[in-house]
């Protein structure tokens, strides 16, 4: 097991390295430089000074070498957009806002998703099932900016129940969390229901029932364990994607999170911040992937890892 873990970590680092390099090149391939938005106002001298300051006027291999050297020292560099601000600090800032929002959204999504899915699976073809699938369908059908605007309009403007923007109070979390979690809830409900029904139809469940085990034990332990495989496949990237894909929600509710930061760093061609975020995101995904694969082993003993 330990050997396997070590191997995986090594592979992950390698992947990360490839990721950084690919991003480095790709980002600089997109047309328009970090300072081109202001180019009409800048004189050639100012432009030259600016490029020199950030080392962008150097040839690509030289830039790459400098960047990697700094990276090994743990220095992600300075943002091109926010003069003088370290990328690490920028990410940290955005992270605290996004994490609190995402954590709650994931929790809500898991609880409600599993709840609805289990209910639908246990009582198929009843009104409970229909209701759960209706909620699921609605959640999949509405784009999240529509949900955001709708919620804002109803709850904040017309009913004055919640503040329109920001995360200043616990009440302010309600709308962004709903907007973020709705889609995952919908997907999760469906997945849980399908997987659970599949598991419940297996022979060992009939066996367990005939043995007289309680419903809770059957569903909660036996069936669930076996149903978890495809669900875990979904949840791991879901969490990672919520972190970044929350751009729209963050943008509309004026939450200074990393989703917004990612989008603006692309628009502004802020190479350093973008690279830094990709590294962070990439590392996160790799960690989640590792956890998911480990989870596979524990859940399904039939899955073996060959070396």
């Amino acid at each position: 097991m330990v050997k396997y873990l070590m191997k995986r970590i090594l592979m992950s680092l390698l992947t990360l390295f490839v990721l950084i390099t690919v991003t480095f090149v790709m980002v600089r391939l997109v047309p328009g430089g970090p300072f081109d938005a202001d180019i009409a106002e800048m004189t050639p001298e100012a432009y030259a000074n600016l490029m020199a300051r950030y080392g962008i006027d150097q040839p690509l291999p030289v830039q790459y070498k400098m960047y990697m050297q700094n990276l090994f020292k743990g220095d992600l560099g300075e943002s091109l957009q926010y003069t003088g601000v370290e990328v690490a600090e920028l990410i940290g800032r955005g992270l605290s806002a996004t994490l609190s929002l995402t954590f709650i959204a994931v929790l809500v999504a898991l609880i409600i998703g599993f709840g609805l899915g289990i209910a639908a699976a246990l009582m198929p073809n009843t009104w409970v099932d229909r209701l759960c699938m209706a909620i699921s369908t609605i959640g999949i059908s509405l784009p999240n900016y529509v949900v955001a605007i709708g919620l804002m309009y109803l709850l904040a403007l017309k009913l004055s129940l919640l503040p329109v923007t920001g995360l200043s109070s616990p009440a302010a979390y309600v709308m962004p969390v709903i907007a973020l979690a709705l889609n995952p809830i919908a997907n999760l409900t469906k997945l849980v229901k399908t997987s659970l029904i599949d598991a419940l139809n297996q022979d060992y469940v009939t066996m367990a029932k005939s043995k007289g085990l309680s419903q809770v034990k059957i569903v909660g332990i036996h069936a669930m364990k076996n149903a978890l495989l495809p669900i875990v496949s979904y949840v791991a990237p879901m969490i990672a994607n919520l972190l970044i894909g929350s751009f729209v929600v963050e943008n509309m509710f004026t939450i200074p999170g990393i989703g917004t930061m990612l989008a603006t760093s692309i628009t502004n061609r802020d190479y350093t911040t973008l690279s830094g975020m990709i590294i962070f995101y990439g590392a996160g995904v790799l960690v989640f992937a590792l956890l998911a694969d480990l989870a596979y082993v524990f859940i399904d003993p039939r899955v073996k890892f060959e070396d």
């Binding site: 300072f35 202001d38 106002e41 800048m42 004189t43 001298e45 100012a46 000074n49 600016l50 020199a52 300051r53 950030y54």
Partner: peptide
């Protein structure tokens, strides 16, 4: 030049600023 200001153009009316 080390400051690398973007909008130095505004200061160019001053003698030798450019």
């Amino acid at each position: 030049p080390a400051t690398a200001g973007k909008y130095t153009r505004m200061l160019y009316p001053i003698k030798n600023a450019q």
